[in-house]
Simulated assay, not measured.
Amino acid sequence: MSFLSSVPCAMADGDFYKLPDLPYDYGALEPSIDATTMQLHHDKHHATYVKKLNDALKEKKPRATNLADLQAEAMKLGSTVRNNGGGAYNHALFWRMMAPVGKGGEPSEALQKAINAVWGSKEGFQEAFSKAATAVFGSGWAWLIVKKGGLEITTTPNQDNNLMISGSGIPILGIDVWEHAYYLKYNNRRPDYVKEWWKVVNWSEVNNNYENYALKGIPVPA
């Protein structure tokens, strides 16, 4: 299945944004993430964010014509746009940030150098990131962001992301730690989910996010 990017605010059917297809089959990330969770997560949760965002934007007048740029306006446009606009954007990135086991590659030389500068090694980064993701209280996300040329690990509640706050950084890797992302397989064992998630990280996509967008100060498109 091909990944469809967000579309401009002038679709023939009146919607602002379109639910993207998954870039792989529902079961492609097993055993790390099961097919049922992927189907529900994409077809129900992500689809609902997109629908509610489209409904809300029929009354709002955003300046942005793409989902990435909308994030900077989301808080000003009210909680419905903030929550569902963030959910639509975060998940659009999330699917592409994962790939079947053994297909995700490794950090590029440039990204690995940046990781080493902060955490000493890829393993040191993964340990710090996993700790942050596991410690998120309730529902939210953990992110690797680019801020002023360097890398940082941050977390956001609910469906927020760093693009919503000016100068807060550009996300290049993120993990969804809402219960709907893992509960069917892992129940309350979030640390187990986070550990298995590393096996399906799509480093090729993260490299692209880092080198072609974030280092240039451009939000990663959805």
Rank of each mutant, 00 (worst) to 15 (best):
G102A: 12
N90T: 07
P23S: 04
N90P: 08
R63S: 11
D34I: 14
S32T: 09
D13K: 05
Y17D: 10
G104W: 01
R96M: 11
H91N: 14
M97N: 15
H91D: 14
F16N: 13
I115G: 04
Y89C: 08
K52P: 01
L77C: 09
E73Y: 05
N54S: 10
A35G: 03
V101Y: 02
K44A: 14
H45E: 13
E106Y: 00
A92L: 06
H91Q: 12
G85C: 10
Y49N: 14
P100Y: 00
L19A: 03
N90K: 05
A28Y: 02
K52Y: 12
A68E: 12
A68R: 02
S79G: 12
K113Q: 09
Y17A: 12
P100L: 00
S108K: 00
V81Y: 11
I115M: 15
G86H: 05
G87P: 03
V50K: 07
H91L: 14
N84A: 07
H42M: 02
A99C: 06
N90D: 09
P31Y: 01
D55I: 07
G86R: 05
D34S: 03
E106L: 02
L93D: 06
H42L: 02
E30G: 01
V50E: 06
L111C: 01
K113M: 04
L77V: 10
P107M: 02
L53T: 08
W119S: 06
H45G: 04
D21N: 14
V101L: 10
G87S: 11
G14N: 06
L19W: 00
Y17I: 13
A92Q: 08
W95K: 04
I33T: 08
M75Q: 11
A47K: 13
G105T: 03
A92V: 03
A114P: 09
K60I: 05
K18D: 08
D34W: 00
H91G: 07
D21W: 07
T80Q: 11
G86K: 06
V118F: 03
G14K: 03
A99Q: 04
D69R: 12
P100W: 01
L93C: 10
V81T: 08
R63L: 14
F16S: 12
K51N: 14
L67F: 04
L111H: 00
T48C: 08
Q71A: 15
H46Q: 12
P100V: 00
L29M: 01
N83Y: 11
Y24F: 13
L77G: 09
E30K: 04
V50R: 08
A114H: 03
P23C: 05
G85L: 11
W95I: 13
I33C: 02
A99V: 03
F16E: 06
D15I: 07
P23I: 03
E106V: 00
K103C: 13
E109V: 03
